[in-house]
Computed example of a mutant assay.
Amino acid sequence: MDMSTQVSDAPLVRVEVVRTRDQEFTAFVQNSGPYLHKTALLLAGDSHRAEELVQETFERTYRAWRKARDGEPRAYARRILLNLRVDKWRRTRREVVSDAVPAGSEPGHADRVVVRDEVVRALAQLPLSQRRVVVLRHLLDLTEVETARELGLALGTVKSANARGIARLREIFQEGVR
């Protein structure tokens, strides 16, 4: 008896794994959590506010999970995160960046922590419109078109805010980050 004949005669079995909404969302949180936290930290300048933003982002994303999962869930959550941060900026109008180095840094990574802290402090000195554009363009690697779409701005506005933001960051780093 030829084994290849036996295998080809066997009926095909199709196994579909159906995940519940909660299982899908849990997988999304595990995969996207670090990315969203990094984004929130860069936008908020403070790890506590970043954690609050991410938590609220997950809450809103979960409520709209059916809509979010049909498209790009990470982009959907990032948009929620940006909107939440803009709302908080509008309410407070003034940023105060924590002087504390983010908790959880491991020995041996001190230089990266110091650099990250300086970048966050420098970003905090930019006007809101420039900071949002610079974070999306250079730290999240979105294109100018994607950034414009994400923020609901004209492409020219994104380009000019980016150029001014980068120029201002250069000045801040030359002067020394405060």
Rank of each mutant, 00 (worst) to 15 (best):
A10G: 02
R14S: 10
V15S: 05
V15P: 01
V17N: 07
R19G: 03
T20G: 07
T20C: 03
D22F: 02
D22Y: 04
Q23Y: 01
Q23T: 09
F25Q: 00
A27K: 08
F28A: 03
V29H: 00
Q30K: 13
Q30M: 08
K38H: 14
K38N: 12
L43Q: 05
G45E: 01
G45M: 04
H48S: 13
H48R: 10
H48Q: 11
R49K: 12
R49H: 12
R49F: 09
E51W: 00
E51A: 10
Q55S: 15
E56G: 07
T57V: 11
F58R: 03
R60E: 15
Y62K: 11
R63G: 04
W65V: 05
R66F: 06
R69W: 03
D70N: 10
E72R: 10
P73N: 06
R74D: 02
A75I: 07
A77K: 06
R78Y: 00
R79Q: 08
N83Q: 13
L84C: 07
L84T: 04
V86P: 04
K88Q: 15
W89Q: 06
W89A: 08
W89S: 07
R90G: 03
T92L: 14
T92K: 15
R93G: 10
E95Q: 04
V97P: 01
V97E: 03
V97S: 08
S98T: 14
S98W: 03
S98V: 09
D99E: 14
A100T: 10
A100Q: 12
V101M: 05
A103L: 13
A103W: 11
G104W: 06
S105Q: 04
S105A: 15
S105V: 14
P107Y: 04
G108V: 03
A110R: 12
R112A: 08
V113H: 01
V113T: 13
V115H: 12
R116P: 00
D117Q: 12
E118V: 01
V119L: 11
R121W: 00
A122T: 01
A122P: 00
L123P: 02
A124I: 01
Q125N: 04
Q125E: 15
L128H: 05
R131I: 03
R131L: 02
R132G: 07
V133Q: 01
V135R: 05
